[in-house]
C-alpha cells in the first residue's frame, strides 16, 4: 500500500512542481523574481474550469489526442519505481512497454497536431517524430547496458539493483548511460538545447507549436501529461545517478526526491547558460547520446 502511495500518488501530486522549479531557477539566474513555484498548478486549475474552442478543421482525433497521451503516460508511470520500492507493475521487459507507451503518447499528440491542418503544427510534428526516432535507440541501448550490469530485465530490478557497489567499479559506463539518458530527457521534454519552451516564434518551436490549438481541459491534460513525462524520465535518470542500498528506505526516497529537485535546478541552469541548438545540430546531439550508450555497453561487455 505504501508502495502504491509512493509510486503513484507522490508523482501525481509532485510532477507539476518540476516546471515550476525550472522556471524559478531561470528567474533567479537572470536576476528576476519569476513566477510562483506552483504556477503550473494554478494554470491547470484555471484550464480545467474553462470551456474549449475547437478548430472547424479538426475531428475526433484532435479531441482524443490529449486524452490518449495522458492515459499512456499515466500507464507508464505504473512501471517506474521510486525510492527503492517496486513499481506496481514490474515484469521482465517492462522497460520496453514503458518506451512504447511514450511512443503511443507521442503518436497521438502528433496526429492531433496534424488534425488542425496548420503548417506550423505540421512543422512541430515533423520535428518531434524526427528527434524521437533518434532518441529511442539511445534510450533502449542505455537501458540494455544497465540490464547487463545488474543482470535483470525489469525497471524495478534494474534501478533497485544499481547500488553504490556497482558504481564503485562501473563508474565510467554508468556515467555514460546517465549522460545518454540526460540527453534523451532533455529531448523528450523539449528543453534547451533541443527545444526552447519559452520561445515566442512558432517557426522555431517543437513541442509548444504542436499544441497551439488545444484549449481548456484538453490543454490541461497536455500540460499535466508533459509534466508527468518529465517526472518519469527524470525519476529514471535520478535513480541511475543516485543509487540506493538495494532496500526500501525513507532515506532513499528522500534522496531520490531531492535528486528530482536537483535535476530540475540543473535543467534551469542549463537553460540559463546556453542557447538552443540549431535544428540541424540536434541529430548530432542525439547521435552523441547513442554513442554514449553503445560505448557504455562495450565497456560493460568487456568487463564480463
Amino acid at each position: 500500500m505504501t508502495a502504491l502511495l509512493v509510486n503513484i500518488l507522490l508523482p501525481l501530486i509532485l510532477a507539476p512542481l518540476l516546471p515550476g522549479i525550472i522556471n524559478r531557477t531561470k528567474a533567479v539566474m537572470a536576476g528576476r523574481k519569476g513566477q510562483p513555484l506552483f504556477q503550473l498548478y494554478y494554470d491547470l486549475w484555471k484550464l480545467l474550469r474553462k470551456g474549449a474552442v475547437y478548430s472547424r478543421t479538426t475531428s475526433w482525433v484532435f479531441r482524443a489526442g490529449p486524452m490518449v497521451a495522458l492515459a499512456a503516460v499515466l500507464t507508464a508511470l505504473v512501471i517506474v519505481p521510486l525510492g527503492g520500492s517496486s513499481a506496481p507493475l514490474h515484469f521482465a521487459g517492462d522497460l520496453i512497454l514503458l518506451a512504447y507507451l511514450m511512443g503511443l503518447a507521442r503518436f497521438f499528440i502528433v496526429l492531433a497536431a496534424l488534425d488542425t491542418g496548420s503548417a506550423f503544427e505540421g512543422m512541430g510534428a515533423s520535428r518531434e517524430v524526427t528527434f524521437a526516432a533518434l532518441a529511442e535507440p539511445a534510450f533502449l541501448l542505455g537501458l540494455a547496458a544497465l540490464a547487463k550490469l545488474t543482470g535483470s530485465l525489469s525497471l524495478t530490478d534494474i534501478l533497485g539493483g544499481l547500488t553504490w557497489q556497482i558504481w564503485s567499479f562501473g563508474a565510467p559506463e554508468l556515467a555514460m548511460v546517465a549522460a545518454a539518458v540526460l540527453i534523451v530527457f532533455l529531448t523528450e521534454n523539449s528543453r534547451i538545447p533541443v527545444d526552447d519552451p519559452n520561445t515566442h516564434l512558432e517557426l522555431t518551436m517543437i513541442h509548444e507549436v504542436m499544441v497551439l490549438d488545444h484549449s481548456g481541459p484538453d490543454f490541461a491534460f497536455i500540460l499535466y501529461g508533459s509534466a508527468m513525462k518529465m517526472w518519469i524520465l527524470g525519476a529514471i535518470l535520478v535513480q541511475i545517478v543516485l543509487p540506493g542500498t538495494g532496500a526500501v528506505s525513507p532515506a532513499h526516497l528522500g534522496v531520490s526526491l531531492a535528486g528530482m529537485i536537483g535535476l530540475a535546478v540543473l535543467v534551469g541552469m542549463v537553460e540559463s547558460v546556453m542557447a538552443r541548438l540549431r535544428m540541424v545540430r540536434v541529430p548530432q546531439l542525439l547521435l552523441t547520446a547513442c554513442a554514449f550508450s553503445v560505448l557504455a555497453i562495450i565497456l560493460v561487455l568487456r568487463r564480463s
Binding site: Y100, L111, L114, A125, A133
Partner: peptide, 21 residues
C-alpha cells in the same frame, strides 16, 4: 528501436496527411 521510431514517423505522416486536416 530505430525502426520503431521511423515507422511511427512514417505512419503519423501517412494517416495524418491522408485522413486529417
Amino acid at each position: 528501436a530505430l525502426i520503431g521510431g521511423l515507422a511511427a514517423a512514417c505512419f503519423t505522416k501517412a494517416f495524418g496527411v491522408v485522413f486529417l486536416g
